[in-house]
Design a binder for these strands. Structure first.
Lengths: 223, 223
DNA sequence: ATTAAGTGAGTGAGTATACACTCACTTTGA
DNA sequence: TCAAAGTGAGTGTATACTCACTCACTTAAT
């Protein structure tokens, strides 16, 4: 039930490239902070320079455009997001059955929630981008979807065979997982007052298990 | 179980003010469409004029600034959102007990989901604004919260007394309702592919009922 | 009835400003 | 001493907003 395998690159975040000057680090950090605070369009390059304690020209030394700067910020996360999402559903992991629904749900959420929590700002920037850039959104989804849908489908089918999970169509089950995750992300990103994120995190697994446990309330009644 | 009371002002939307010229209507409509498509900052006033088939000066005849134009678009929805959220929890409705958890959940979601569905574009604009304007976000929430929290608390306490609902703290129950709604809204607004919204709506009630039904999985396990 | 005066929505060229981006020059450090 | 990093004044452009003007239409006066 415990999965302490929180990936090391959570801390790494923006660094990874060894040959980076302190000023360039400051620029990346300032950009990330400002984009998350005010939004991409509402952040000017002079804002960034000022926050980073740097001349505006320095911003453009490494990154040709403002958009390129944003991409540079998101590069590490997009590089790691696919492995994170696909983790636990690799072929060899699949061979060992998930013994219980709880184990399955815990496996799904623990790492991913920790990842989200460690990258709230980045996620906010990604969401702002994806919200209005349809093409980009579809591109991101098309990368992620196949990594998740097929392997998780296998696990779900196993659980179904053992009557450990509710007998809904697989896509509905996936949708409910996604929906649940969205609700959590919204709370993280919007910093809704009165929300205790720690408790919310534990609650997520409890709730998701409850949703997927087979029972009598399972027929989906039309409106 | 049926609540056909979908409010009439769903259709009314932008009209309501009788003395409005066709061109001004066109401007409001074009603004709403463009803000929802491309985002507020990415929409120029000349874009709006062009889409509305109007000179740029005409946009500024009635609305002093671009932000005022956005506010004018959101005025009808913000005027109606509080009554919608508070509906079914007025004093006199409260006197008649909710006979079952299912009735409670259905009551909560039906109207609100219909409202959301009828105002996706407006909601998208509101969310864009709220995402980065902390002050505005808190202002909106401070208007909504008291209308929901207290009256729903009463209903929840009634249900608890009858052992019809899970024995969690009230704010956690509210949080789970909110979270569920967010997940749904995200799917609406992002137009995630492969999502059948109709089914999703029925599913929302089923799932929420299942979450709140008392059972053995209810202890919230910490990590 | 006809014309003059008035009204205000609509127009689009024009303005001021903010901002992304450049480049000739300076500083740093190996 | 040289190459790379950093600088900040400067430039072009996009765009929010203005304003003097048009014109269809209403009202008033003769």
């Amino acid at each position: 039930m415990e999965r302490p395998r929180i990936r090391d690159y959570f801390q790494q975040d923006l660094s990874q490239n060894e040959t980076i000057t302190p000023k360039q680090r400051a620029i990346l950090q300032a950009s990330l902070d400002l984009f998350a605070e005010k939004g991409f369009d509402q952040t000017s390059t002079s804002d960034i320079a000022q926050r980073a304690g740097v001349a505006e020209g320095t911003v453009y030394r490494r990154y040709k455009t403002k958009a390129a700067l944003r991409d540079a910020i998101l590069a590490p996360i997009t590089a790691h997001i696919v492995p994170i999402l696909a983790s636990d559903f690799s072929e060899d992991e699949l061979r060992q059955r998930y013994p219980s629904l709880q184990a399955f749900v815990t496996a799904i959420f623990t790492d991913r929630v920790a990842f989200a929590k460690a990258n709230v700002k980045e996620l906010k920037v990604i969401f702002e981008m994806a919200a209005f850039d349809t093409e980009r959104r579809e591109q991101i989804l098309s990368q992620i979807a196949p990594k998740m849908v097929k392997p998780m489908g296998s696990v779900i089918n196993q659980l179904k065979a053992d009557h450990l999970i509710v007998d809904w169509p697989n896509d509905l089950i996936l949708q409910s997982l996604l929906s649940q995750l969205f609700g959590y992300l919204a709370q993280l990103m919007l910093e809704l007052p009165g929300t205790e994120i720690e408790r919310e995190q534990a609650y997520l697994i409890t709730v998701m298990t409850k949703i997927l446990t087979p029972g009598e309330h399972d027929q989906i009644t039309g409106q």
